[in-house]
Design a protein around this nucleic acid. Structure first.
Length: 420
DNA sequence: TCTGGGGTCCTAGGACCC
DNA sequence: TCTGGGGTCCTAGGACCC
């Protein structure tokens, strides 16, 4: 049996944690750059604010309904997430962290324990320890557990848990879930399935296995198995090292200034380098891309990207910045207004598996020591306390974040103050 | 003024090898 | 009418996830 625990309206719940007066009030959290809505409290959902709504189209509505708006504060959400996961880990021998607000729990070795009772217990404990509301779905496969979780939220809102303990309960859930709400079914597959007359998950579970395989390849076969109670998605208890790493941002405002782009690209390359070293990887190539704003149909559009092979696989900040700047030189053209740029490092391998290049004149040991020292200082003093000159300190291209809350739990200067 | 950022898996097709 | 038969590796593109 699999349990899926999911934090309700996670980002909105995190913000409300430190401002209890917002309980019962509509709260939304915006994406980077305050672009669009990415999290909503129940109250915000109830007044019809849709996921992904551009913020600039909603100001009227926010004012009208007295909606509290936040910029996203990933430092805070990441820390609250760690705490929730720690609490969850105390209930089962093993769990898989699936996303910042979700985890699968392995219930297979809990013997005859009453899983409904366990679910309620989890919910109560997380609420008491952390203050974040969660929902729990328990079922024989991951796909069904995801479904059970969604079903709990929809149908047993106040209870917050659903245990698909037998065939009747599984079928009841399947019959009340539409195909488009199944985990793994997106827009394209929804079109395909509806076109063939499949409306509910129950319909799909009874589709001919052969048809699922031929029209949806192995993805369809797996899904068919999972819907029929045959686990076909493996556990991943240990986070696998990433195969590529991307750092990209939209700018606070459009720019064609090459110096500004150099600064942004250097910073993103440096972030990639830190992420690489954290998982003990080096990359074989670096990709740099620029995007104009596709929404501005009257602007000239240009979305170039270029990949540069590293002479020797590396995770060195200075080296990656140099590659990234070389890439920028290659694709940059005057006369365009850019909205976004990014750096992707590809072909990651373990740092110990590097083939030495016999023409390599760089003292890698020395640079590695310097990088490690830099990481250590930055871990203590906050990220980017030490940086390369080209990164600058003034962040002229910085994103918008007009409604940022404090980093209550990770920065001593921003700790919650209580007036008595 | 203003529309996120970061990933995964699968398949097809081309380049190349013996 | 006809063009070998296997392989591997890489990339691009499409689908999906939060």
């Amino acid at each position: 049996m699999y349990a899926l625990v999911d934090c309700n309206n996670f980002y909105a719940s995190c913000e409300r944690l430190f401002q209890p007066k917002l309980r019962g009030r509509p709260v939304v959290v915006l994406s980077n750059n305050d672009g669009c809505v990415i999290a909503r409290s129940d109250e915000a959902k109830a007044i019809g604010i849709a996921m992904g709504t551009p913020a600039h189209l909603s100001h009227e509505m926010f004012r009208e309904h007295d909606v509290r708006v936040f910029s996203s504060n990933y430092t805070l959400y990441g820390d609250i997430s760690d705490r929730v996961m720690q609490t969850l880990a105390s209930f089962v021998p093993q769990l898989e962290l699936y996303s910042i607000d979700e985890a699968f729990l392995d219930c297979s070795e809990l013997g005859l324990m009453d899983l409904s009772k366990l679910s309620l217990d989890i919910r109560r404990t997380v609420m008491q320890n952390i203050g974040i509301p969660v929902s729990v779905g328990v079922a024989p496969t991951k796909t069904l557990a995801k479904m059970a979780n969604r079903y709990a939220k929809k149908k047993y809102k106040s209870l917050g848990v659903f245990y698909a303990a037998n065939n009747d309960l599984v079928n009841q859930m399947l019959s009340e879930t539409n195909v488009e709400d199944i985990w793994g079914i997106g827009r394209q597959y929804t079109k395909l399935l509806q076109g063939h007359g499949f409306k509910t998950a129950l319909d799909l579970s009874r589709a001919p296995e052969e048809w699922m395989r031929t029209s949806m390849t192995v993805v369809g076969q797996r899904l068919w198995n999972e819907l029929n109670g045959i686990p076909s998605i493996e556990w991943e208890f240990e986070a696998a090292p990433k195969k590529n790493i991307c750092t990209s941002r939209s700018f606070g405002k459009l720019t064609g200034d090459k110096e500004l782009l150099r600064e942004a690209v250097s910073n993103y390359a440096a972030r990639c380098a830190v992420k690489l070293r954290k998982q003990h990887s080096v990359c074989r190539s670096v990709n740099i891309f620029l995007n104009t704003n596709p929404h501005k149909t009257d602007h000239r559009q240009y979305m170039p990207s270029v990949t540069i092979e590293c002479e020797t696989p590396t995770s060195d900040t200075g080296e990656l910045i140099a590659y990234a700047l070389k890439g920028l030189d290659f694709v940059y053209q005057k006369g365009y207004l850019f909205m976004k740029c990014g750096v992707i490092v590809n072909g990651l391998i373990h740092e110990d598996a590097v083939q030495q290049n016999m023409f390599d004149s760089r003292d890698r040991e020395k640079h590695k020591k310097a990088a490690n020292a830099m990481d250590k200082i930055n871990r203590c003093l906050g990220k980017d306390a030490v940086r390369m000159a080209v990164q600058r300190f003034d962040n002229r291209y910085k994103l918008r974040a007009d409604h940022l809350s404090k980093r209550y739990t990770t920065n001593i200067n921003e700790i919650l103050r209580v007036k008595i």
